[in-house]
Amino acid sequence: MAVDLATVTRIAKLARLRLAPGEAEPLVAELNGILRWIEQLGEVDTAGVEPMAAVIPNHLRWRPDAVTDGGVAAAVLANAPASEAGFFAVPKVIE
């Protein structure tokens, strides 16, 4: 499954990475090289094999339903590039 320029552009868009002029073309070759290499996985017969769910056998623990966190708006906002009136501020979105 070789990727082309259009695919690279679409993937970059999905990943919200703006590609500078001339940046996409070399990526096409690079990604194709890497993808060709990882595609050897297709050789492996995995019929009846479950995908790995837990690296080391373990069980998901549940926490009790209690309010133990929050109330730290200042800490939450402290690193924000822009905030106003307790909100994060971003370029205006039109829905």
């Binding site: 966190d69 929050g70 109330g71 730290v72 708006a73 800490a75 939450v76 906002l77 009136a85 307790g86 909100f87 994060f88």
Partner: peptide, 8 residues
């Protein structure tokens, strides 16, 4: 109030 019920 905004962002007061927010954990890290």
């Amino acid at each position: 109030a905004p962002n007061t019920q927010v954990s890290l």
